[in-house]
Nucleic acid binder design. Structure first.
Length: 647
RNA sequence: GCUGGCGUAGCUCAGUGGUAGAGCACUCCCUUGGUAAGGGAGAGGUCGACAGUUCAAUCCUGUCCGCCAGCACCA
């Protein structure tokens, strides 16, 4: 007998080996009918599975949120059957569920195109309407290999071999078609329903390894109901509207062009934003004891050989080739750290100088693979807010805690309060003694604990020279972006011959903590644009206020308003063009100008302004002085607000 | 880097083996209008680059560059 505990707390005994379906039937035929799967001790399982141990049991209906991944997984199988039916000779590989949908990787000599989608979707609907039950069989390895070999399914053959011995080899059938699969699945194909859509096609390496053949991946999305699918499509369209590449153009912030792949042409407005970020960070660093420095863009390649970068990242570095009569090769810096070590080394350092915190807004160049480039998010030339904290081994933990506090407080100021931390520990390929790794990892762990933030372990993903923390922001529409990083480096100072004089009088190598808060300024700006959908907070907005005249009668007053606004510290301009006010409002709204100050005869006479905020149709008329005071207060960066309030 | 797609005016996009079009934007003129497009006229393109096929290439073929999606990569 097995004892099953139901969600209401009831506990009943059943014969050992009874299936979930039989249990459901005994309770009520209607329950059995609407159940598509079960959860045993919270783990989804086939309803046809025999139950052979005591467990809690829940019946999962199709509209249960947990059924969604089953719908998607079943839909992937349906798509695979449809593709193999329509395109004989296509080999199937794997087809997992992913966020918002599923994909299936196929191998076929001739690639698919989106024009194939309607036919595939039509065939899928036929298969779903046919509504065959999903049945599971457990095959022997020999049987599976013979079947897949006979069918020319070479990739499946490999998958069979990859299944660890002892694990069952399960085959799910849906009518004549079947697939090797871990399961579980719903009771029948018809449960997939009709709220699905094929989305896109892309290449993907077999087993994710770029040495392997490229497969064709078809992505699809599937939902329990049509309105959920519609909402999902709507969300995608909204995300598209936030695209920083498009907003960057519309807001006149920056552009790219062919001659400089992966490098940004910052326009005046974009550069204003860039500078606002730097000014902010500079203040935060100054108040926490960082010293800003600046190091050369080009340094002799020998330095990069010594640092170890040349060996590991040669392919990713830009080198100079300048004059025929000078064979000396320089490297355009891909990182700031070796430069900072040079500053540390210049002049004898004492333990009394530690911790020494050097910071630089350093522009680095990396030869990123062409396929990786993506707007501001992944570029070849970017600016890091890069700091290196030189400490003794004993100071690592305390400094990491301070850095962690600083980083989290910075993100709050930019409206990111949902931050996750990833902890990456020692990788396979690494340098340095395990004892020192132990110490460094423990230090980061203490910072993690002190932060009280959720964190996850990224096992083995640390840098070759030390463990690291990575800060992942969640934006307004739930996407995650990795930004800041704290890396303990036990290696580079030694490689570059940095030391300090310890209290004992001995020369001792310092430990270096690499720290980036924004990470890449370019990328952070991209994230800000998308997070705010272009509606930047006033303190960051490059153009804060635009004074628009109703008619030319107000030109003189408008100029006065602009001058007064500038005196109040507000970035303001005037629009005196001979256009209707509706036209101006529309144009500046599209350009995401946060504040429109409309002035006509009336305002000029009263020394007032009519304020219209971006995203609102409301207007409020205020006396000029009061309006500017309010705007100036709102435009104050959050850190300055804090210091003023404290004073 | 790999696979697939794309590259025509500042932007969004039509189009054709016989040297190109729309809307918006731009310039000028008219309009002085109270909160998301007033009217008229005009100008603007080596059709990504280089080869090849052809009497003739923006169109067909090849190579390269760039962009987009995904994969791989990301010190």
């Amino acid at each position: 007998m097995v004892a099953l505990t139901f969600p209401d707390g009831a506990r009943r005994d059943y014969p050992n080996g009874i299936t979930g379906l039989e249990v459901a039937k005994k309770i009520s035929p209607s329950l059995a009918k609407r159940t598509v799967a079960m959860a045993l001790d919270g783990v989804l399982a086939d309803l046809s599975d025999p139950i052979e141990r005591d467990a809690s049991i829940e019946f999962v209906a199709r509209d249960d949120p947990r059924a969604l991944e089953l719908i998607r997984h079943d839909c992937a199988h349906v798509m695979a059957e449809a593709v193999q039916t329509l395109f004989p000779g296509t080999q199937v590989t794997i087809g997992p569920v992913i966020e918002n949908g599923f994909y299936y990787d196929f191998f076929r000599n001739q690639p698919f195109t989106p024009e194939d989608f309607p036919a595939i979707e039509k065939k899928m609907r036929e298969i779903i309407t046919r509504d065959r039950p999903f049945t599971k069989e457990v095959w022997s390895r020999e049987q599976a290999k013979k079947v897949f070999r006979d069918r020319g399914e070479n990739f499946k053959l490999e998958l069979v071999d990859a299944i660890p011995p002892g694990e069952e080899l399960k085959i799910y059938k849906q009518g004549d078609w079947f697939d090797l699969c871990r399961g579980p699945h719903m009771t029948s194909v018809g449960k997939v329903g009709s709220a699905f859509k094929l989305m896109k096609i892309a290449g993907a390496y077999w087993r994710g390894d770029s040495n392997n053949p490229m497969l064709t991946r078809i992505y699809g999305t599937a939902w329990a109901a049509q309105d959920e699918l519609d909402q999902y499509i709507h969300r995608l369209e909204e995300a598209e509207k936030r695209d920083h590449r498009r907003l960057g153009r519309e807001m006149d912030l920056f552009h790219f062009q062919e001659e400089a792949p992966g490098a940004v042409f910052w326009h005046a407005k974009g550069w204003t934003l860039f500078e606002a970020l730097i000014a902010y960070m500079r203040r935060r660093q100054q108040e926490t004891g960082y010293l800003e420095v600046n190091t050369p863009q080009l340094m002799d390649s020998a330095l990069w050989v010594a640092s170890g970068h040349m060996e590991k990242y040669r392919e990713m570095m830009f080198l100079t080739e300048s004059r025929e009569d000078d064979e000396r090769v320089f490297t355009i810096k891909p990182m700031n750290c070796p430069g900072h070590v040079q500053i540390f080394k210049n002049g004898l350092k004492s333990y009394r100088d530690l911790p020494l915190k050097l910071a630089e807004f350093g522009k680095v160049h990396r030869f990123e693979p062409s396929g990786a480039l993506h707007g501001l998010m992944r570029v070849r030339a970017f600016t890091q807010d890069d700091a290196h904290v030189f400490v003794t081994e004993d100071q690592i933990a305390a400094e990491c805690i301070l850095i962690n506090d600083l980083i989290l407080s910075i993100y709050m100021d930019f409206g990111f309060d949902d931050v996750r931390i990833k902890f990456s520990d020692r990788p396979q390929k690494r340098i340095g003694e395990d004892a020192v790794w132990d110490k460094a990892e423990a230090a980061l762990m203490s910072a993690l604990k002190a932060s009280g933030r959720p964190w996850t372990l990224n096992a083995g993903e640390g840098a070759f020279y030390g463990p690291k923390l990575e800060y992942v922001l969640r934006d307004a529409i739930g996407r995650e972006w990795q930004c800041g990083t704290v890396q303990v480096d036990l290696n580079l100072p030694g490689r570059l011959g940095a030391f300090h004089i310890a209290p004992s009088g001995e020369k001792v190598m310092p430990v270096m903590i690499h720290q980036a808060n924004f990470g890449s300024l370019e990328r952070f700006i991209g994230i800000l644009i998308e997070h705010y959908a272009g509606h930047l907070p006033l303190w960051l907005s490059p153009a804060q206020a635009l004074v628009c005249t109703i008619t030319s009668d107000a030109d003189a007053y408008a100029s006065e308003v602009v001058a007064a606004a500038k005196r109040a510290g507000i970035r303001a301009e005037a629009d005196l063009r001979n256009e209707k006010i509706s036209y101006k409002v529309r144009e500046h709204s599209l350009a995401k100008i946060p504040v429109l100050l409309v002035v006509g005869k009336k305002e000029a006479a009263e020394r007032a302004v009519s304020i219209r905020r971006l995203g609102s149709e409301q207007q409020s008329v205020m006396p000029l002085d009061a309006a500017l005071r309010a705007l100036a207060a709102e435009a104050t960066p959050p850190d300055l607000k804090r210091t003023r309030e404290a004073a």
